[in-house]
């Protein structure tokens, strides 16, 4: 999932200072699961923004708490059109994609991001999320036993280990297990240590970030 975290509350109050009618738009997908932008967080933020305005004074703030199935698809945003009439600004509690879709779907609406979008990852404990994928565009997990060295090795080594690990821990950050040791152990369990002899050539980073925003077209499903 996309993992995001809330922006500081004072940032949002400052951004919304000029507006009277503000929508707080959440997303029921990734950001809801990482407890940053789901229905609950939307209601909480809307309530807090109204309270702040009442305490500090100034024009009264009216908030509209709204949550959509997926903020990154226009068909889910379209039904908000009627509700958003007369709304001056919105805080999007979607990921960076959601914020941009919301802004594009409603050109008259000033959209403020309510979250900082961090990574593609997952929860490893209650309240803890870790990165698992760098979105490099060319998956190598078949060579590394399902453990991504680009993401989980601090040095992003394609051909590891570096030899710097101590007691299974990374020399860069001892909190993190050495990804290459994890890879070795997993390959050994499957009797596939030979894969470690496979030399991976330098990656084609154009697939990741070489030519501006990436675009995927699949003719077989294209409308």
């Amino acid at each position: 999932m996309i993992v995001a975290k809330p922006k500081p509350f004072p940032f949002l109050t400052e951004q919304l200072r000029p507006y009277r009618k503000v929508a707080v738009v959440g997303c029921e997908t990734c950001v809801a699961v990482c407890l940053a932008g789901g229905e609950r967080e939307v209601r909480r933020l809307a309530q807090a923004l109204e309270l702040e305005r009442r305490v500090r004074g100034g024009v009264e703030l009216l908030t509209l708490p709204l949550t959509v199935k997926r903020q990154c698809e226009y068909e889910y945003l379209e039904p908000l059109r009627e509700t958003l009439k007369g709304v001056e600004a919105a805080v999007s509690l979607g990921c960076g994609v959601g914020v941009q879709y919301l802004a594009a779907a409603f050109p008259e609406l000033w959209v403020v991001p309510g979250l900082d979008t961090l990574m593609a990852g997952g929860p490893t404990a209650l309240g803890v999320w870790e990165e698992y994928c760098r979105l490099c565009g060319e998956c190598l997990l078949h060579l590394t036993g399902g453990i991504c060295p680009l993401t989980r090795c601090a040095k992003g080594l394609l051909n590891g280990p570096c030899g710097g690990a101590s007691e299974g821990r990374c020399e860069v950050n001892p909190e993190v297990p050495c990804a290459w040791i994890l890879i070795y152990e997993r390959l050994r369990r499957f009797g596939k240590e030979e894969l470690l002899r496979h030399l991976t050539p330098p990656k084609n980073w154009q697939l990741a970030q070489g030519r501006g925003p990436r675009k995927l077209v699949r003719e077989e499903v294209r409308g």
């Binding site: 609950r40 209601r43 909480r44 309530q47 807090a48 109204e50 309270l51 009442r54």
Partner: peptide, 11 residues
Amino acid sequence: VEEELILKAFA
């Protein structure tokens, strides 16, 4: 007791 509930009491 969710955070929203507490905020509502203050509101």
